[in-house]
Simulated assay, not measured.
Amino acid sequence: MNITGNTVFIPGSTSGIGLALARELQAKGNTVIVGGRRTELLARIAAENPGLDTVRIDTTDPASIAAAAKEVLAKHPDLNVLVPMAGIMRVEDWHRPESFVDSAEATVTTNVLGPIRLIAAFVEHLQTRPDATILTVSSGLAFAPLKATPSYNASKAAIHMLSESLRLQLADTSVKVVELEPPSVRTALLPGQEESEFAMPLDAFVSEVMELLETQPDATEIQVENVKFLRHGEARGDYHHVVATLNAADPHGK
């Protein structure tokens, strides 16, 4: 995707990677709309970041997605980039169904149904733009599982294959599908992850992502160096070593 001159909607970007990416994209000359559930937090973000637009959206609620899409497109008819960012990650113990079923269902609703519904709400509009991008967000754990987070791993694997499939289907349109594959990053995705020595500093991650977007405009997958160990284990032939190393070393893998 081009790094400047876009109008970008990032639902689920009131903190962490999403908010950092929104700020960097705005600094590069893009119009950016931040989406989130908490109106007071959105108001604070708008006050602290002049020029960032905000819209309330709950990506677990189809009616909220429809209302937000209508609002965004009315205010920003030149919207050409969608980044479905919202996601949750929870530790689960699958020995006991009562300990994981609610968590698993919430994870799938947020991490899989959310992006599907968001893309459905915007894909027809995006096809009217001469240069449009859907930037999906999967994870290194789409390619190597962290034992503690089965539903998160599965949800991000689903996003990877959804991205691959949409890229094929939309190849006859103006819409590019690009997949961002974060490693573990110092955010509040899991308790303690912001202090994890195994996680990549947020500023360093976003800086490298921006550089990759700028220098590799035709890339279909955005992979910082830290995620390649997870992403390419099968291709290298050391997948089992990758899985063992991940689960021995990093309780907060993303």
Rank of each mutant, 00 (worst) to 15 (best):
N49V: 11
K156I: 02
P251I: 09
L246A: 10
R236H: 06
D102E: 13
G192H: 11
T110G: 04
G36H: 04
P77Q: 07
S151V: 02
S139A: 10
F198A: 13
L41Y: 00
A188G: 11
F205Y: 15
I17V: 14
T173G: 05
M210C: 07
L180E: 08
A22P: 06
G12F: 07
V227N: 04
K75C: 05
L79G: 12
E92D: 07
A120Q: 15
K147P: 00
A158F: 12
L168D: 02
L168H: 02
L41R: 15
V32K: 07
A204C: 06
K70A: 15
S165G: 12
G5E: 12
E179N: 15
G18Y: 01
T128H: 06
D238W: 00
E92C: 13
L180D: 04
T109G: 04
D250S: 14
E24C: 06
P77Y: 11
R37E: 12
A219G: 10
A63Q: 14
A63K: 06
V32S: 07
K70I: 06
A154Y: 01
T136F: 11
F122E: 00
V123M: 01
D131L: 02
G233S: 04
R186E: 09
A148I: 02
H240F: 14
L42W: 08
A244L: 11
G237V: 11
G237H: 05
M200S: 08
Q26I: 00
E211R: 15
V224A: 14
A63L: 04
Q127E: 14
F229N: 08
E194A: 15
R129P: 04
K156H: 08
R231G: 07
